[in-house]
Design a protein around this nucleic acid. Structure first.
Lengths: 239, 239
DNA sequence: CGTGCCCTTGAGTACAATCAACGTTCGTGG
DNA sequence: CCACGAACGTTGATTGTACTCAAGGGCACG
């Protein structure tokens, strides 16, 4: 059931059979959410965390004028609000972008893990630090990359993250985002995203349409994005 | 010696005398760095983390064209690369902006804490999640705030963070950043930062000059920044 | 077969970047 | 002590990337 989560971890570190069992037992129930459902509201007190099994969510913040910034996309295998375990409330909202299947992990079970399983604790801690690394890379995109490079970079990042859980390959992946949502990820407007996607298509880098990314030339795409997957911390370990 | 660090923690949670002693004993040595020194290089293997006692540092990433994005400023009391404990290498560089005094904490002592002090572990974990929250707020600034609001927001954030460690009050604080560095924080150019600081000065919000922020009207400044300190997680607890 | 949402394209605008020049400050060495 | 240079700050003129406004097309769903 939590296979994508285990795959995500095992792409980074060794997980013993015992630890795997502890993680499986940490789940109290599974749930289904429809698309466009606010799953966590900023500042609400939290006592469970949500592990995303299927579907896509985003965390976002907005300004009074209605401008919305998506701070991160979460995909299958992501422990969406694990940071809520120590924060106890979130500084942002979490929204489903598609119908989602999730596993619920009560905080008291996470507390028990911190008391009995130091290595597993470090591993969970690592996962939240990985999210922070993604935030930093997005800061670089938002602050310094050109519009077209921001989009290219986002497409490259999702390809890697989805391939870890078996949802992407060299040719592409399902991307259930509207152009407006892509704009909210990249700090652009929907209109400009549309123009930039056209450029990416006409430059024969990648084609984004009807819910799917078709990668045409990955090497060229990664070059204009200046994509370097180091920040996703694949294939090291020893935590 | 690690007083600013303890002050930062105590602004968020209760720390027992025993835990305080453990933290004090986690420090192996203190060091001094000159300004403009690269303290941590991206991708270097790490086996210690750095606690900043005095001075200011930044973490940054850059593009091939030389454009630099500062992802976060770190101030007295910040555990600059605590996330390196679980990541084992960083995705970014860390640079001193002023001369800095730091405490060095070996990772094996942090490992010992995770094995013997669950509450302290959660507290340290919390601190890295707090950094991530700051990253998210910066994503909102970089993606959606206007130039003047980005600067105003940065000034507000630093005022709160510095006041926790006794380095700021209602009237202002020392800010040892050049306008170019402010530009690297806010995703702008140095020239435009200069113009926006002029607007902030002429609008009687705040005056930034010769290494110091003089706050003229905090309420007005916070309003144009849409500053809400929730994301700094002050005054809750129970981790 | 509408209605609403999303995508697409064009025209005009604006905010911030770029280019350029000059002023100020400060440290250093003659 | 003063001259010099380098780094930082300031301002003006111009350019350009991305935004805004607007209208029309495609598609899915009731």
């Amino acid at each position: 059931m939590i296979e994508p989560f285990l795959a995500k971890i095992r792409a980074r570190d060794v997980l013993s059979a015992d630890e795997e069992a502890v993680l499986r037992n940490a789940v109290s129930e599974t749930k289904q959410f429809p698309a466009d459902r606010k799953v966590v509201r900023a500042n609400d007190r939290l006592d469970v965390s949500i592990l995303l099994l299927e579907g896509m969510m985003c965390r976002y913040k907005d300004l009074r004028n209605g401008a919305r910034q998506i701070a991160q996309l979460t995909v299958s295998g992501d422990f969406v609000d694990l940071h809520g375990f120590t924060l106890k409330r979130l500084d942002h909202d979490i929204l489903t972008l598609t119908p989602c299947r999730v596993a619920i992990v009560p905080h008291d079970r996470l507390t028990a893990i911190t008391e009995q399983h130091p290595h597993l604790t470090r591993l969970l801690w690592f996962l939240t630090n990985l999210d922070a690394a993604i935030h930093r890379e997005w800061e670089l995109s938002l602050g310094r990359r050109t519009a077209i490079a921001r989009l290219a970079h986002l497409i490259c990042e999702l390809r890697v993250r989805l391939s870890i859980v078996g949802l992407a390959d060299e040719t592409g992946y399902a991307l259930p985002l509207t152009q407006t949502e892509l704009a909210e990820c990249t700090g652009l407007t929907g209109v400009h995203v549309n123009r930039m996607l056209k450029e990416l298509r006409e430059g024969a880098f990648v084609e984004v349409k009807s819910g799917r990314v078709h990668i045409i030339d990955l090497r060229k795409l990664e070059r204009i994005a200046e994509f370097d997957p180091c920040y996703l911390y694949l294939g090291n370990g020893g935590r």
